[in-house]
């Protein structure tokens, strides 16, 4: 998705834009606020990767069918490929880059390493964000419930058994 080359929009931006105008949006990513001039048709996923260079979040299908693009919106997992960046002015977004604190990995990240919960790693950042959301919600308890809650994250390498084991351990640790 190419950005438009049109001049930046003025103050009334979120009321209306002409077709080639960019919109001003303040994205609150991993605790840092960034003001962007952005074409309204830019997905949150493309804004993260192409504008903010946060490439930890992956583009798999770009159609909501794989979960590689999962990020946390106010702590809840969503597909960044099916939402527009302009719609999230000032909303707290956490990507995989925002999970580690003070140089130590998030317990879910550590559990994924300990349990060898990936092969190629392409789905992993999405899996981890979903798992963090799952633990925060605290609804899934059994293996069946973990699997069902995580079903929006496809792993083409088939690392599922280890992913479930990693989540079970991280759940106990948190």
């Amino acid at each position: 998705m190419a950005d438009s080359r049109a001049p930046a929009a003025s103050a009334a931006t979120d009321r209306a834009t002409s077709p080639m105008q960019k919109v001003s949006v303040a994205l609150l990513i991993n605790g840092a606020r960034t003001q962007l001039q952005i074409a309204p048709w830019t997905t949150l996923l493309d804004a993260l990767r192409d504008r903010l260079h946060l490439t930890g979040t992956k583009k798999g299908c770009d159609h909501g069918q794989c979960g590689a693009c999962t990020v946390l919106l106010n702590g809840r997992p969503i597909n960044a490929c099916l939402t527009l960046a302009v719609m999230h002015d000032g909303v707290e977004i956490t990507t995989v880059e925002g999970l580690a604190h003070d140089g130590s990995l998030h317990p879910v990240q550590q559990a994924f390493i300990d349990h060898d919960a990936f092969q190629c790693g392409y789905c992993t950042s999405g899996q981890i964000c979903s798992a963090v959301g799952l633990i925060r919600e605290g609804r899934a308890r059994t293996r069946d419930e973990i699997r069902e809650t995580m079903s929006g994250n496809i792993c083409r390498c088939g690392a599922y058994p280890n992913i479930v084991a990693a989540i079970e351990e991280a759940m106990k640790a948190t």
Binding site: G64, L73, I78, S130, G133, T149, M150, G152
Partner: peptide, 9 residues
């Protein structure tokens, strides 16, 4: 229906 992520949006 759908997935956790989709239902959240």
């Amino acid at each position: 229906g759908a997935s956790t992520q989709l239902r959240n949006m």
